[in-house]
Every structure is written in structure tokens, then in C-alpha cells.
Write a protein that binds this DNA or RNA. Structure first.
Ligand SMILES: [Mn+2]
Ligand SMILES: [Mn+2]
Ligand SMILES: [Mn+2]
Ligand SMILES: [Mn+2]
Lengths: 218, 218
DNA sequence: TTTAATTTTTAGATAAGTCTAAAAATATAT
DNA sequence: ATATATTTTTAGACTTATCTAAAAATTAAA
């Protein structure tokens, strides 16, 4: 299993989680930041190895085995993110890039022991669930903050966008996982909303609100 | 800096530490388990990049910059070995293979924070010194157990051979870093020796004794 | 249902890293 | 000093992963 193969499997895995059914060559190319022709080549190889189901012009899907390999990479990625944040004083906008490297380290013992060392965490620093060894993962059923109505309350449980710039914005506004919020008002014109968080009132754009996951509390 | 380039620099670094002056193409090939022709190609590239001094047929040496890069990889390797042993319940014969992968993770913050997290260790699980950020390293001046005479005493401070099979042998004999030993007798015929360790008397071959570093205590 | 646009695949080229086999340089032995 | 052996380098080939450009299949539009 080469680095490149692993990254392709992971990309397909992530796209699959959003859209059901086959994955298009172009969508993989976009996520991987490569050309479609490169994707076709790689998919053929993964197909030979029994990691994806592929019929030309028809799209690609992970096999059982491919899904297990991919989820294991995601598992490692998220465990390492927890490690970096909890043990090594990284901030939640710094962990992803390093985890992109660490997720490819091959050692089952390492992964298991890391899991135990961290106290078997269920979510990564961005609120995303951590798959178990068999690829089982809590499907995220959280609602987006942008879908809440006036007077709705909830707790922040995750972010959809994990980019460094977005996370830094949240830090600046003191918006963090676990915080209680209440929607004070919504503005129909641009879908911005006024919310109360930590006894402060702030206005956030729809772009922000549609990247924050909430667990509604009433 | 590719994975392959890093491994070549590390190989040259390790050979240099034993032999002074230029390093032969063949010695690099042997350490890297590749062909001499491959080494020549790579050395040319490293030379272009200013990481090694190279004149054809004359041998290779690390430049200041190359030495710094190499020692940083060794630094990471040994820090990770400490981490795996101290925090993740690895045994000292298991840490090396995983550290071979982890040493290539690129993040200065990660290395620094790991160093701090581990309490700034000075030696890895095999007794080898850990270089600092600037490439400074305590040169090992320890003596080999095989050079001791009858009635000499000392403390085990390191191993020369870090192979899994050797380390497992030591575990079986309960020979470990920090243990006090005394040479009870030496056998001139095959250079084996009888030693006292943990109040037990055991006989070890010269091959064993010449792979254990001792700090003489009188 | 033809035609046009889009998506996907193929064909051919390139770069990195490796190999084998042969040539060149250096070292060793008679 | 000359012949022989060893070491090192070059030449050419192969694999993996990528790209561009062109062809083929599919989808959308007229
Ligand atoms: Mn991430
Ligand atoms: Mn994450
Ligand atoms: Mn090691
Ligand atoms: Mn070591």
C-alpha cells in the first residue's frame, strides 16, 4: 500500500460519505488536486487490487476491503489530531497538516496503543467521529447552526470546514466545541444570525453558521 | 527533501561517525541495501543541492548543512523511540522499525513539543545520545564490555547492535541499561566471560560482550 | 433525435529512483 | 612496472506516479 494509493482511498471514502453510490472521476481529481487522467490510472490499479469496484465511464466505489483500509487511515488521522492537541500543545487549526503525514505510519500496535494512551477518544478536535478498528463509525446526524431558528438553543459539537483560517476565526470569536449557544435573531436578507455565546452577543454570516455543527438542546 | 534523500543522508551520517574522512560508495550501498550505481546517482543529486561534498572516485562527505539535516533525522528517530517505549508500552526491540517511519515526519513544532513532552531525554532506549536542534551530540566514549578485565565493574549504558534478535536475547538474560555488572572471569580460548549481574552469574560469548557498552566504575 | 457540451479514458511524455551490464578509474599483487 | 582485481561510474532500461493532448463515451440541449 503506497502513500498515493492510501490518499486516493481516503479521498474516495470521504466523498462516499457525502454522496451515496458511485464516485465520479472528476470529484476524486478535484479532492486530490490532480488531473482526471491520473485518477483513471490509479483507479485501475486499485481495482486490480480489489480495493475499489470500477467499470469504465460508470464511476467508482470502495469494496469492503477498500473501505476498511480507508477508515483505518481516517482513524489514525483523527487519533493523531487528538494526540497533537491534547499532549503536544497544538491548536486545533495546526493539527491537520501534521496528521496528514502521521496517518500513513504503518504499525497496528502503534495505533492501538495511541488509542489507549489517549483514553479511547470518540471524536477528534474538530468534532469528527473516530472510526474503530473494524471501520465502524458514528454517522454524524448533527444539524448545522445555519438551520436553527430564532430562540433555538444548542451546543457546538463540530465543524464542517476544518481549514486553518476558519478555525482561527472561531478562536478569535471564542467559539469552541462544547459551548452553549442561543439564536437571538436571524436576518432573512443575507441569512446572517445574531447568537449568544458565553454571555456575549455576536453576529455571524451564513457562511460561518453553515460550517458549525450543533446538537439542539430543545 | 524526499524520503530517499533523507535516508541517504542518514546513512552517510552514521558511517561518518565511525570512520573519519570520506565515505565510500560501496559502504553507503551496503548500509542502504542498494546497488552502488544507485548510490552514485543519488550522491550527484545531493551534491547539486549542497548537502554533500563529492568528487568522483574520491568519496563523499556531508557538508555542514547536510550534517544538520541528517542529525535532525537521527534526533527525531531517537525521540520517537523514547516516546514509543516510555508512553506506548513498546519494548526496546520493537521501537526501531516504527521510528524508521516516524523520523521522516516534517514539523519542527512536533519535534520540539515531543522533546519537551518526554522531559528532554538525552539518550534513546538503546543508550544512544540524542542530538540537539543544532546537531550537537555527545560523542560516545563508552567502552565495550568485551574490553574489560577480570574483577572490573561497571554499569551498562548502551548497546552497539540494536537488532531485535540481540535485544530479545538481552531481555531473556535480564541484561538491561542501568544494571551493574562485574566481570568474574574471562576465558582466553574463545574470549567468553563470566559476569555477575543482578546477583546472578552468567556466561556470555565474546559476540555478546562486544555489543554492550559499559561505563566503568573503577 | 441529432447535435453540442461534458466527462472519462487512452496515448504518449516526463521525472524520480532503482536495476543490470559494461566501461573507466583506482588499488593491489607479482 | 605491468598485470590483475576491485571500486566506481556511466549507459540504458524499468516502474510508479504524474502531466498534456487527443479520442471515445456519456449526458444535455436543441
Ligand atoms: Mn484533519
Ligand atoms: Mn479533524
Ligand atoms: Mn533505531
Ligand atoms: Mn536507538
Amino acid at each position: 500500500m503506497t502513500l498515493s494509493e492510501e490518499n486516493y482511498l481516503k479521498a474516495i471514502y470521504h466523498i462516499c460519505n457525502h454522496k451515496e453510490g458511485g464516485v465520479s472521476t472528476n470529484s476524486i481529481a478535484e479532492k486530490m488536486d490532480t488531473k482526471a487522467s491520473s485518477v483513471t490510472d490509479m483507479i485501475k490499479k486499485l481495482s486490480e487490487k480489489g480495493l475499489v469496484d470500477y467499470k469504465r465511464y460508470k464511476g467508482t466505489a470502495l469494496t469492503q476491503e477498500g473501505k476498511l483500509v480507508a477508515s483505518n487511515i481516517v482513524r489514525k488521522h483523527r487519533l493523531w489530531e487528538v494526540f497533537l492537541l491534547e499532549k503536544l500543545n497544538f491548536t486545533w487549526d495546526e493539527v491537520h497538516d501534521v496528521a496528514e503525514q502521521l496517518e500513513h505510519i504503518k504499525s497496528e500496535k502503534l495505533t492501538d496503543q495511541l488509542d489507549a494512551f489517549l483514553g479511547f477518544p470518540t471524536r477528534d478536535p474538530h468534532g469528527d467521529p473516530i472510526p474503530d478498528k473494524d471501520g465502524n463509525i458514528k454517522t454524524v446526524t448533527d444539524t448545522l447552526l445555519s438551520t436553527l431558528q430564532k430562540d433555538d438553543r444548542g451546543i457546538i459539537v463540530g465543524v464542517k470546514d476544518s481549514s486553518s483560517s476558519f478555525l482561527k476565526y472561531l478562536d478569535k470569536q471564542e467559539i469552541a466545541l462544547g459551548k452553549k449557544i442561543k439564536v437571538l435573531d436571524t436576518e432573512p436578507f443575507d441569512n446572517s444570525m445574531k447568537i449568544k455565546i458565553k454571555k456575549q452577543e455576536i453576529v455571524i454570516s451564513n457562511q460561518i453558521a453553515s460550517n458549525i455543527y450543533i446538537k439542539k438542546s430543545n
